[in-house]
């Protein structure tokens, strides 16, 4: 057991070395740190109250010294709304990704390890989710369940696990054939033990790279759902801000300070996740190395 830990620690060290040399990965990490700090510390410095409406003159007021990013359709400070939105958008993204990761990993390992009819059945089910048009499915689920923030997290989580399940299954199939699995079985390890103790640690690096790419999709999904009116009005995310911006006609008024910042933040977060995901894939995926 001690040796296994030593091997894993050495591998983690190697990974960090390659990561530090990866320009794309480092850019993504720095960008993501910026948004995480904004989400965690921002609201403490610049608290936001969504009920803090301004007077008539404040409506769509352009950027000024007091309000660096101007004011929105209700005369609220855009910068404060943006910071509070960061917390909501990122939380939804991360939590829904966790659901998707757990579901995808579970289904992938069980299908790959069991093989036979169970595998065929589970993969058919996965294919259905892979094929179904993603946005209509989420919109309908959100309409059925009602649009609270927890339902949105659930909806995104439940519709985005299929890709992970495929990747994990493929990896499980190769890990399963290795000798140490047979050895473990020979000394009497049960299926559950082998799956959690031997297969899971070996597929985990790939799950990790995949999860980061899923986070990017989750953030875009939340933004789009909220924009299309399925968002939680009590928890205004960046998508909700854009929903209000569109509904209030910010585009025709030319209120770019209300229109651009939430969208740019979404692009920034998604881009940082994509960079990180690509970097991890490049480092961890042996097939890509030889190119």
């Amino acid at each position: 057991m001690k040796e296994t830990h030593a091997i894993r620690r050495r591998k983690a060290g190697q990974f960090m070395d390659s990561f530090r040399k990866n320009r794309m990965g480092m850019t993504g990490a720095i960008m993501l740190c910026f948004f995480l700090i904004m989400a965690v510390a921002g609201p403490l410095l610049l608290p936001y109250n969504a009920m803090d409406f301004g007077v008539a003159d404040d409506v769509f007021a352009p950027p000024s010294r007091e309000h660096i990013l101007g004011q929105d359709d209700m005369g609220r400070d855009v910068l404060r709304a943006l910071i509070s939105g960061a917390r909501i958008s990122l939380s939804v993204g991360i939590l829904s990704t966790l659901i998707s990761m757990v579901a995808g990993t579970f289904l992938g390992i069980v299908a790959g390890y069991s093989g036979g009819k169970i595998d065929v059945l589970m993969m058919r089910f996965t294919d259905v989710f892979l094929v179904l048009p993603w946005l209509p499915l989420m919109l309908i689920l959100a309409a059925v369940l009602g649009s609270s923030i927890w339902n949105i997290i659930l909806v995104i989580g439940l519709t985005s696990w299929a890709g992970t399940a495929r990747v994990v299954r493929a990896q499980t199939l190769t890990v399963k054939e290795r000798q140490f699995i047979e050895r473990a079985r020979a000394i009497g390890a049960g299926n559950g033990y082998i799956m959690t103790r031997h297969i899971l640690p070996n597929v985990f690096p790939l799950v990790f790279a995949n999860t980061i790419l899923v986070s990017a999709v989750a953030i875009i999904s939340e933004t789009t759902l909220s924009f299309l009116g399925m968002g939680d009005t009590l928890h205004p995310s960046w998508g909700m801000m854009l929903h209000y911006a569109f509904e209030s006609g910010a585009a025709s008024i030319g209120a770019y300070w209300f229109l651009l910042p939430p969208g740019l933040c979404v692009v920034g977060v998604v881009l940082s996740f994509t960079f990180l995901g690509y970097a991890f894939d490049e480092i961890l995926n042996p097939k890509l190395k030889k190119r």
Binding site: A216, I220, T223, T224, F227, L228, G239, L242, A245, F246, A250, A251, S252, G254, Y256, L259, L260, G263, V266, V267, V270, L271, T274
Partner: peptide, 14 residues
């Protein structure tokens, strides 16, 4: 690839 489609549309309209 990282842009929400609808946002790009609004920016184009503006």
């Amino acid at each position: 690839y990282s842009m929400p489609t609808f946002w790009l549309g609004i920016v184009f309209v503006a």
